[in-house]
Simulated scan of single mutants.
Amino acid sequence: MSYENILIEKEEGIAIITINRPAKLNALNIATIDELHRALKELKDDKDTRVLIITGSGEKAFVAGADISEFADFSVKQGKRLSEKGQDSLFDYIENYNKPVIAAINGFALGGGLELAMACHFRLANDHARMGLPEVSLGVIPGYGGTQRLPQLIGKGRAMEMILTGGMIGTEQALSYGLINHMVAQEQLIPTCKEIAHKIMKNSPVAVATAIKAVNVGYSKKGFDTEIDLFGESFGTEDFKEGTAAFLEKRKAKFPGK
């Protein structure tokens, strides 16, 4: 199967999926989300693949957010559908995947990029990575699971601060928060992921798949459904129209507060 926006490399039971849109800092557009889903679906049935690693091309960005230009003019209904479809086909799909998926964060992981990393079963980052959920600066909220997975990973208070300020944190802070498992130099990022993958592959693939399922049972789907609804409602606000327009026009937003 051929892809325009991702690359797949296989070796010794490991599949490395690289999001390859360097000119856009690997931003997630609808086509890339679809390609990732198709690749994951194909690898799910590949008995030779035991562990997956997701990363971004280059050293600047893992995924620097969603492609804002695609949904700036969406209605409430379209916004809700965007969130619902994305969660179902990619973010929830990864979280409930039957093989371990490791995020190798090689730079900026913002908005949908951080949400993608959080959907993976665990995360490693290079020492200059930056992470955040800046959606409120656009008049919208995280819509790909960010309001649910971030509190689960780092606690409610820290998650609230990150989401409400829209600010970024560095790798050391992400490590202390528990957002990532390991911080390594860029040249050691993929090798360290592979090292962990080989440790996992020594174990029963059936037991590993079952363990993933068992851990995920502890987290409610209701919160994600609420996020989808509220994300969609954000598309009907004047703040959203101003926030996205300001972003695309590269100016500071002046939110009317309605």
Rank of each mutant, 00 (worst) to 15 (best):
Y3N: 07
N5V: 00
L7V: 09
I8K: 03
I8N: 06
K10S: 09
I19A: 03
P22I: 04
A23V: 10
A23C: 01
L25H: 07
N26I: 05
A27F: 00
I30K: 15
A31P: 00
E35T: 09
H37R: 13
K41N: 14
K44T: 11
K44M: 14
K47T: 14
L52K: 05
G58S: 02
G58W: 02
E59V: 10
K60E: 14
K60C: 00
A61S: 15
F62Q: 12
V63D: 03
V63Y: 03
A64H: 12
I68F: 11
S69K: 12
F74A: 14
S75E: 05
G79W: 08
R81P: 00
S83K: 05
G86A: 04
G86V: 11
G86E: 06
D88N: 12
S89C: 01
D92K: 13
Y93A: 01
I94K: 05
Y97H: 10
V101A: 09
A103T: 09
A103W: 07
N106P: 00
G107R: 05
G107M: 09
G113L: 06
R123W: 01
L124W: 03
L124E: 08
A125V: 13
D127M: 06
P134G: 02
P134H: 03
S137M: 06
I141A: 03
Y144H: 10
R149A: 08
Q152S: 02
Q152C: 01
L153D: 01
L153N: 05
G155F: 02
K156V: 08
M160V: 08
I163R: 13
I163K: 11
I163E: 11
L164G: 05
I169V: 15
T171N: 07
T171P: 01
Q173S: 13
N181A: 14
Q188L: 15
L189I: 11
L189D: 10
P191A: 13
K194T: 04
H198F: 11
I200F: 11
A207W: 01
A209R: 06
T210D: 06
A211G: 08
I212D: 08
K213Q: 14
V215Y: 10
V215M: 12
Y219D: 04
K221P: 14
F231I: 04
G232S: 03
S234P: 02
T237Y: 01
E238W: 00
F240P: 00
E242W: 02
A245R: 15
A245V: 05
A246P: 10
K250W: 01
K250M: 08
K250L: 06
K254F: 01
K254G: 00
